[in-house]
C-alpha cells in the first residue's frame, strides 16, 4: 500500500494533468481563430498557422468593416439587445417582486401558471401564427415582445428577493406608510444590484446571440440582426461581395470568417469579466429550490 504522501502527490499530478488538457482543449480553438484573424489570408489558406499569427495584417478586419450589412446588423442587434433587455428586466421585476411576497394572497396560483409554461408549451407553429396575427411579422416588435420574459430568470429573481432582502426591512417600511411600489424602487431594487447584473448579462447575451426568431419573423434584410448576417458569411458562405479580384476574393472570403467571429463575439466577451463575479451567484440562487 502506498504511503499517504505518495498518494496525495500522485493524485495532484493526475488532477493537474487532466486540468491542463481540459484547458488546452477549451482554449486552443479560440486562440487559433484569434491568430488566424490577424494573419495573412494566404497563410490561413495554406495551413501554416498552428498557434501564432503569420504575416501580421489587419486586412481581414478592414474588409469586415467595409461590409455594410455587418454595420446594419451590428446596429440592429444593439437596438434589439438594448430595448429587449430593458423590457425583459422591467417585466421580470414586475412579476418576480409581487410573487416573492409571502403576504400576497393568490401567489401560489400565479406561480403555478408561470411554472407550468416551463414544462408544456404550445410549440413553434401556434406561437408563429400568434405573432403573425398580431401583425408583428417584419417588425422590431417580433424581436422583443415574444421573448419578453424567460421563466427561469423570473424564478431566479423571485428566489433572490425572497432569500436576500430581509422581510423585516420591508415590513417596517410598509408600516411607515411606504407604498409597495415605492418600497420596490427605493429599498428592494438598490439591494438587488448583483441579481440585476446577472439578469442583464443573461438576457443581453440571449439577445446578442439570437437568430431563430429573426429567421422566421423578419423578411427585410435591413432589419436583420448581426447573427443572421454572420450566418450568411459563416454557414451559407455568401460573402462574395467583399473581396476584389477572383482568387483574392476566395482567399479573403475565408480569412474574413475569422475576423467576423472576433468582431461579433468581442462585445460579449468584453462585458463578461465585469459581470463574471455576479453570475456564479446568479446560477447558485437558481439552484435553490424556491
Amino acid at each position: 500500500m502506498p504511503s499517504r504522501a505518495a498518494d496525495e502527490k500522485w493524485f495532484n499530478f493526475l488532477i493537474y494533468g487532466i486540468a491542463t488538457i481540459t484547458l488546452v482543449i477549451v482554449l486552443y480553438p479560440l486562440v487559433f481563430v484569434l491568430s488566424a484573424s490577424f494573419s495573412n489570408p494566404e497563410k490561413v489558406a495554406d495551413g501554416s498557422i498552428w498557434l501564432l499569427p503569420q504575416g501580421l495584417t489587419l486586412e481581414p478586419y478592414r474588409k469586415v468593416f467595409e461590409n455594410e450589412s455587418i454595420w446594419t446588423g451590428y446596429a440592429n442587434t444593439l437596438f434589439y439587445a438594448g430595448a429587449g433587455t430593458l423590457v425583459n428586466i422591467a417585466l421580470t421585476v414586475m412579476a418576480a417582486y409581487p410573487l416573492s411576497r409571502k403576504d400576497l394572497p393568490g401567489r401560489q396560483i400565479f406561480m403555478f401558471l408561470i411554472t407550468f409554461t416551463m414544462f408544456f408549451s404550445g410549440g413553434l407553429i401556434p406561437t408563429f401564427l400568434l405573432v403573425k396575427s398580431l401583425g408583428m411579422i417584419n417588425t422590431a416588435w417580433a424581436m422583443i415582445v415574444p421573448g419578453a420574459i424567460a421563466t427561469y430568470n423570473l424564478i431566479v429573481m423571485r428566489t433572490f428577493f425572497q432569500t436576500s432582502i430581509p422581510v423585516e426591512l420591508q415590513e417596517s417600511a410598509w408600516l411607515d406608510g411606504c407604498s409597495n411600489i415605492r418600497l420596490l424602487i427605493r429599498i428592494v431594487l438598490p439591494l438587488s444590484k448583483p441579481i440585476l447584473a446577472v439578469m442583464v448579462l443573461f438576457y443581453g447575451v440571449g439577445h446578442w446571440n439570437a437568430w431563430f426568431n429573426a429567421l422566421i419573423y423578419l423578411k427585410d434584410e435591413h432589419l436583420y440582426p448581426l447573427q443572421l448576417v454572420l450566418r450568411e458569411i459563416l454557414i451559407l458562405n455568401q460573402s462574395d461581395d467583399i473581396g476584389a479580384g477572383m482568387s483574392e476574393r476566395v482567399l479573403m472570403s475565408e480569412s474574413i470568417k475569422y475576423s467576423v467571429i472576433i468582431v461579433s463575439s468581442v462585445p460579449v466577451l468584453l462585458i463578461y469579466p465585469f459581470i463574471q463575479k455576479y453570475f456564479v451567484q446568479g446560477v447558485m440562487i437558481g439552484s435553490i429550490k424556491g
Binding site: 414586475m94 412579476a95 409581487p98 408561470i114 409554461t117 408549451s121 404550445g122 410549440g123 401556434p126 400568434l130
Partner: peptide, 21 residues
Amino acid sequence: LLLLVPMVWYIVFKYYPMYGL
C-alpha cells in the same frame, strides 16, 4: 397591478398558443 402586465404577457404568449394547439 405590478403583476398585471407580466400575467397578460403569459396569457397571450404562453397560454394562447396552447389554445392554438
